[in-house]
Simulated scan of single mutants.
Amino acid sequence: MYRHNPAHAQSRPYSSPPPVYRVYHDPAGPAKLSTTVVHALSDCLDVDVTDGSVTLYDVVDPDALDAIFRPKHDGTPRASGSLSFVVYGHRVTVHADGQILIEPPERYR
Rank of each mutant, 00 (worst) to 15 (best):
G52Y: 03
P104Q: 06
H39Y: 07
S15F: 02
I100Y: 04
H73L: 13
H39P: 00
P77G: 04
T50C: 03
H4K: 11
V37E: 03
H90F: 11
T36M: 06
R109H: 12
H4F: 11
S84D: 10
L41T: 02
P71K: 05
D51R: 04
T50F: 06
D43I: 08
G29I: 02
K72Q: 12
V20K: 07
A28D: 15
D97P: 01
D97C: 09
V92Q: 08
D61S: 11
P105K: 04
D74A: 05
T76F: 06
I102H: 05
H90E: 07
D97M: 01
H90V: 00
P62M: 06
Q10F: 08
H95G: 01
A40L: 05
V87D: 14
G29N: 11
P30M: 03
P62V: 03
P17H: 09
T36W: 01
R12D: 14
L56G: 06
R107P: 00
I68E: 15
K32A: 14
A31Q: 15
A67I: 00
L41M: 07
I100T: 03
I102M: 08
S11F: 03
D61M: 03
T55F: 00
Q99C: 14
D43G: 09
Y108G: 06
L41V: 02
T36V: 14
Q99V: 08
S84R: 11
S53M: 06
R91E: 15
V49F: 10
E103Q: 14
Y88T: 09
T76L: 08
L56S: 07
R70H: 13
D51H: 04
L33Y: 09
R70V: 00
P18E: 09
D26Y: 03
M1T: 12
S16M: 11
G29S: 13
T35R: 13
L56M: 04
V92R: 10
V60S: 04
L65D: 10
D66I: 01
C44L: 12
G81C: 08
Y21T: 13
S34I: 01
D48T: 00
D63I: 00
E106G: 05
A40P: 10
T93K: 11
H39D: 15
T93M: 09
N5P: 00
P17T: 06
A67M: 10
C44S: 13
D63K: 12
V47L: 05
D97S: 14
Y24D: 13
H39S: 14
F85I: 03
P104K: 04
L83G: 08
T93G: 09
Y2S: 12
A9K: 07
P62K: 08
P30K: 10
N5F: 03
I100W: 04
L56I: 06
E103I: 00
D43T: 10
F85D: 04
R3D: 13
D48E: 12
H39F: 02
L65R: 08
L41E: 03
V94Y: 05
I68N: 06
L45P: 06
L56W: 05
V94F: 06
S80V: 06
P19S: 12
